[in-house]
Amino acid sequence: MLAFMDYVQHAFFNASQWNHDNSYSTLTATAKALLDFDSPRGVRLHVSSLAAPNFASSYTLGTVGVVDGSISYLYSSLPLKLESKSSDIDLHRVIRGYRHLQELRSPDEAHWWEVWHHGRRVDRKNALLYGRLYLPRSALEALYLRRLSPTRQLKIACVSDPRLVNGGNILALLQNDYGKYSTEYLYSTDSGLLGVRGLFNFGPDPRKSAGVSSGYQEPLYGRFSAGAELYYGILNKSGGVSTGLRFTTLPQHTGFPYTMTLTLNPLMGNLSSTYAVKAGQNLALCSQFDFNFYSYESDIQLGCELWRRRGTQEVDWAKKLLRPDWTNPSPRPDEDVSGVLKAKVDQNWKISVVWEGRIKELLFTLGASFDLKRREQVFRAVGVELQYSS
């Protein structure tokens, strides 16, 4: 489940009209949402608040061996309109599940963002600031996001931790999104890493189709994308390259939604393929196969998510119980959802299961992981996370 601060950051992307999915770094986001979830360990409590449309805070307390926690604050120059109470947040926005990619949109014209007053340009570039302090080890992380133009965004992430080499690291990322394609340029102080990424979407160009005011346009049922990444470490004089393909169905597709990806790292010899399908309204399935053609080692993972929904009579009864004066119903999108079950297993019979949902005023994640090959210690981890926000 997304932490409250990640939920607010996604709201900033939506408010500033930034397509977070049109990037090579999110090429396999659908499979990761279904397979790359971690089971909570111990007990962890998050208390968060959106005190103002521009300011949010969050406090975390956990017990994993020792008592630890964190304090985080976020500021956005762009007022964010979102549900902040944990009792009102749409579960679909905080639970990572099958990702339905939407049609590409044309970026705004640069002059649309201009604001003039008495002959002077007074508009400002929207920015987001985020900081988090981990206790008791006094590690600090910070994030700076700035929308430079309708097609460009700057992201700077910093980490200060005595356990890291040189005591910390800074990552700068310049992102460009033109709809039809996107590019990213990155620099990291760790090994002096330089990198470039790119993603190209086949099919019509949204910048050209946006200008068509008349005439019939055949709807798009799927999108094929291809991308690559190249990086080089100046200090250690080593580099890497990867490439990937993705095909996903769009909302106009009348059958089961599905997403297929294939990624290749030729220098390391790693080949990975994923297939995710929304098999029904409440069920999604995913598989991932990894193979190294240098060592001939392979891995396979299978995962699923199952949304549990309440019956119509149960929903109506809950409405009357919670709101006896119900006259003009305006139900939440997830009002009939009582929880989501996620499970995954690999070829070594390592199993992880989590149950996510809402109870009263709290969002919760209850999970456990097992290793069936270790008969003397089958349970690897058991835990629960609770989130409350206002």
Rank of each mutant, 00 (worst) to 15 (best):
A139E: 09
A139Q: 13
L140A: 08
A142Y: 09
L143I: 05
L143Q: 14
Y144M: 09
Y144Q: 05
L145G: 03
R147Y: 06
R147P: 14
L148R: 07
S149N: 10
P150Y: 01
T151W: 06
T151K: 12
Q153F: 11
Q153M: 15
L154W: 00
K155N: 10
I156Q: 00
A157E: 01
V159H: 09
V159N: 09
S160N: 08
S160G: 08
S160I: 04
D161M: 02
D161T: 02
P162K: 13
R163V: 02
R163S: 02
L164R: 06
V165R: 08
V165L: 11
N166T: 10
N166V: 08
N166W: 11
G167R: 03
N169F: 05
I170D: 02
I170E: 04
L171E: 00
L171C: 03
L171N: 00
A172F: 14
A172H: 01
L174F: 06
L174A: 09
Q175C: 10
Q175L: 14
Q175A: 09
Q175M: 13
N176E: 13
N176T: 11
Y178R: 12
K180P: 01
K180C: 06
T183E: 15
T183W: 15
E184I: 02
E184T: 13
L186M: 10
L186T: 08
Y187P: 01
Y187L: 05
Y187V: 02
Y187T: 01
T189Q: 01
T189F: 03
T189R: 00
D190G: 06
D190F: 13
S191F: 14
S191T: 11
S191N: 14
S191K: 15
S191H: 15
S191Q: 13
G192F: 12
L193S: 07
L194D: 05
G195C: 05
G198K: 03
F200S: 10
N201V: 01
N201M: 04
N201S: 14
N201Y: 04
N201F: 02
F202T: 14
G203I: 03
G203H: 08
G203F: 04
D205H: 06
D205S: 05
D205M: 10
P206H: 04
R207Y: 07
R207P: 05
R207M: 07
K208S: 12
S209I: 00
A210G: 07
A210Q: 14
A210Y: 08
G211N: 15
V212D: 09
V212F: 09
S213K: 15
S213R: 14
S213G: 15
S213T: 14
S213M: 13
S214I: 04
S214D: 14
S214Q: 14
Y216D: 08
Y216C: 09
Y216H: 11
Q217Y: 05
Q217V: 12
E218Y: 08
E218D: 08
E218P: 05
P219V: 11
L220V: 08
G222K: 05
R223M: 13
R223N: 02
F224V: 13
F224R: 04
F224S: 10
S225F: 06
S225K: 07
A226K: 06
G227R: 00
G227T: 07
A228G: 13
A228E: 01
A228P: 00
E229D: 15
E229K: 12
E229W: 03
E229S: 09
